[in-house]
């Protein structure tokens, strides 16, 4: 038996304001959706003592479609990912 992670991250297109906060998110290569509200944001820095260090800035967003998504930026200025 093996466990499969449920909310594995996948790459997304995100546009940010000058402060680095997401303003538009294009999910699943669809058209960009405007961010209505940033409900929460948090930093996760973990496993820094290994060669698989994690440095993520998470945002919990409400899009103009009403959808709630969690995205993160992988390291300062890095790529954006969303959780399914």
């Amino acid at each position: 038996m093996s466990l499969r992670a449920l909310a594995s991250p996948h790459a997304v297109e995100v546009s940010c304001d000058p402060g680095g906060t997401p303003v538009e998110v294009a999910l699943d290569a669809g058209r960009p959706r405007r961010v209505m509200t940033v409900r929460d944001d948090w930093l996760v820095q973990d496993l820094w003592w290994t060669d698989r260090a994690i440095d993520r800035h998470y945002f919990e967003l409400v899009l103009d479609s009403g959808r709630l998504v969690v995205v993160y930026r992988d390291g300062p200025g890095g790529a954006w990912f969303a959780h399914r």
Partner: peptide
């Protein structure tokens, strides 16, 4: 499949649940 809680308090969403 069913969803099982792994670390529901985790700040990393992919660690919260898994499929088995």
């Amino acid at each position: 499949l069913r969803i099982v809680e792994i670390e529901p308090w985790s700040r990393r969403p992919e660690r919260r649940w898994a499929l088995t």
